[in-house]
Design a protein around this nucleic acid. Sequence first.
DNA 1: GCCAACGTTGGC
DNA 2: GCCAACGTTGGC
Length: 140
Amino acid sequence: MRYWLFKSEPSTWSWDQQVAKGDAGEEWDGVRNYQARNFMREMKIGDRGFFYHSQTEKAIVGIVEVIAEAHADSTTDDARWDCVDIKAIGPLDTPITLAMIKADERLAEMSLVRSARLSVQPVAKQEWDVICQMAGVESQ
DNA sequence: GCCAACGTTGGC
DNA sequence: GCCAACGTTGGC
């Protein structure tokens, strides 16, 4: 299993909206960046991801699971763009802010720190474990 | 194929 | 609101 991070502006698509979709989940559509798309094409059902709120909040707020592998993005006719479906698994007891991530040298290599604009990013197993520990959730 | 111009994103 | 980073576009 691999780990990922999905970034969204809460005013566009928030964690609460994701949770409201329940187990049916929702497309992670609207990605128009090749690197982000390529990561989604690598995803498998059952992969886990962090749900990150950019801009106003700048924090990881929840954990999601990939429930459908890459398929055509329904928000465009352009065949270049694919997306996966994800569902909410649960919130973090303690949201992990960007400041907390930047303050921990074990997380210095994260794409979130190094490549802030990338909206879908891979997360290393050890980074996943560190953040889960900080957030008070069991690493899964 | 290069590079300048431009648009978008996101942190501060 | 500003600015840096960076991806995309289009002229040459």
